[in-house]
């Protein structure tokens, strides 16, 4: 059981996490944050294994991982 949480106020929609995730959990959502970025969402949440690779490559500390 693992969970990835995106902090939309920090996300800049750079996609590095999407490319890093080996399970294809993440994708760009359809909601923009205050700065106008369409932020990442955990579309396939239940596939997350808590590897933290997405968070490691995130340049904006916009991802929290729970296990």
């Amino acid at each position: 059981m693992a969970k990835v949480k995106i902090l939309p106020e920090y996300c800049k929609s750079c996609r590095l996490c999407i490319e890093a995730c080996p399970k294809g959990v993440l994708k760009i959502g359809d909601k923009a944050n205050a700065k106008g970025y369409y932020t990442v969402i955990a579309a396939d949440e239940e596939k997350c294994n808590g590897c933290t690779l997405c968070a490691i490559v995130c340049p904006d500390v916009a991802i929290e991982v729970y296990k």
Partner: peptide, 23 residues
């Protein structure tokens, strides 16, 4: 569930001013 990754205490809450994807 326990938080295994998040903002370290060495950083403030201020979002970085860098461009998207800048390492």
């Amino acid at each position: 569930m326990e938080k295994v990754f998040g903002r370290p205490k060495g950083l403030t809450e201020v979002p970085f001013s860098f461009c998207p994807g800048c390492t």
